[in-house]
């Protein structure tokens, strides 16, 4: 139903990427987002999940990730991804230096930059031991 939040909680591990992606795709269909925006949404979700399983939880002790979405009105979707790992606000991460040549360019470090580039807005808060990262995505960029 429109506006009613839907939630999925899974263990934060690479194998959870596919079911979480399918879960948010369902919301994107409800919101009637165009295909390119759906792909961007999938990218946002993957970048957040990779950050969680790589940095939030110590190796060998994975925790949970809870993904919640709602469709407040057609063409809009609100998403929150929450974990109970190490406190980390990705929005404070330093931006990558995109002017470096190939020999000096690090192989990684682009995930958070992509997050900030594609989400319409993004908000982080630490609350009762949870990292809560929320954003919304609309049919138009």
């Amino acid at each position: 139903m429109p506006g009613i939040p839907q939630s999925l909680t899974l263990i934060a591990k690479p194998e959870s990427l596919a079911p979480v992606t399918e879960f948010v795709r369902k919301g994107a269909r409800e919101a009637n987002l165009p295909e390119l925006r759906v792909r961007e949404l999938e990218l946002l979700i993957e970048e957040i999940l990779v950050n969680i399983w790589q940095y939030s939880y110590p190796e060998g002790a994975p925790g949970t990730v809870a993904v919640t979405y709602s469709v407040p009105r057609p063409g809009e979707m609100e998403i929150e991804v929450a974990d109970q790992g190490v406190e980390f606000d990705p929005l404070t991460a330093d931006p990558p230096d995109l002017t470096l040549d190939l020999s000096r360019r690090p192989v990684g470090g682009l995930g958070i930059f992509l997050l900030k580039s594609f989400a319409n807005s993004m908000n982080y808060r630490r609350h009762l031991g949870w990292n809560r990262l929320s954003f919304w995505i609309s049919a138009s960029p």
Partner: peptide, 20 residues
């Protein structure tokens, strides 16, 4: 290719460095 994430980009940069 319909989709690439930062993990994919990491591979492209890594391969480009090796070839260079």
């Amino acid at each position: 290719l319909s989709y690439v994430s930062s993990m994919g980009l990491r591979s492209f940069v890594g391969v480009a460095k090796k070839l260079k």
